[in-house]
Design a protein around this nucleic acid. Structure first.
Lengths: 148, 148
DNA sequence: ATAGGGTCTCTAGCAACTAGAGCTTCAAGA
DNA sequence: TCTTGAAGCTCTAGTTGCTAGAGACCCTAT
């Protein structure tokens, strides 16, 4: 049985994050030692490694929750898992496309800058005046936050 | 003078977001009408458009704060603005690289899936067992959250 | 005069953690 | 065996950039 610190070292997931995962029900409540400290077995370690790996692939915790419940049912069709992974791939692709547009815009902005004073700086200029921008905002009504 | 609703319509920034920007000091406190409603002039509208545009290019609010204070000093060198934009470009490039790695990994995972049952599903398998993964985690000690 | 929209403040919530306070437990050395 | 320092515990609050809701107020048009 591992302490939470050993489990953290073994999986690369930080201690408070492990407790957080337990709080939100992604990990089952851990057994406790006589002194009320959490103890983990191999199954818990594998489950946490699964979570970590999925997080590294960018899956949101809700998708991971679904994947975990699927992995508990080995005889089911894996179509549902495919759907989740495909959805994640689409999200990743979409973010790449949008980031590449930003990349081009930022590069253009920097390339145009004559390194003079603020008053004729293209960086400030492009940000100030939308006409200087190739970026299409007017068909763009997504929440801004989702692009990061 | 514009009401907050008109300003919102003019800039594409939602009303609560405008109030939020005022709260955190990104916009100055607005003038008020006799009935305590916010009123905006053209300068405010331009400042907000600047903010919106920079957000669309992915700049964090703290960078925007710096850029705004720079844009108030037209005679300064624009080197500082360049630094901020370059930093942002680097952040965008970095995210693209990492997302492309995820993209490849997800594609490979899906391509390998034989569409059978969960027990032999490569999606679950890759997530469960790190050995099945091309993804390099062991040099990777960034916080997981920053990859999204 | 009144109905409806827009606006006000304030609080709470989202994802996915992270940091800190103040306490207890455990393991290793003297 | 005692002690000390690391590691663990719970709980709250903070992060980023907003968004949603409650309940009250204002403003314009009919």
């Amino acid at each position: 049985m591992l302490s939470i610190g050993k489990l953290s070292a073994a999986t690369g997931v930080k201690v408070p994050t492990i407790r957080y995962y337990e709080d939100i029900g992604l990990l089952p409540e851990a057994e406790r030692s006589a002194g009320n400290q959490r103890l983990y077995d191999l199954a818990a370690q594998e489950r946490l490694a699964f979570i970590r790996h999925a997080r590294e692939l960018g899956f949101p915790l809700d998708s991971i929750r679904e994947l975990l419940s699927l992995s508990d049912q080995p005889d089911m069709s894996c179509a549902a898992a495919d759907v989740i992974a495909t959805r994640q791939l689409a999200a990743v692709n979409d973010r790449i496309i949008r980031l590449q547009a930003l990349q081009r815009e930022l590069e253009r902005m920097l390339a145009q800058c004559a390194h003079g004073t603020i008053s004729d700086c293209m960086v400030i200029e492009v940000l100030s005046d939308h006409a200087n921008c190739l970026h299409d905002h007017h068909g763009d009504r997504r929440p801004l936050s989702s692009q990061s």
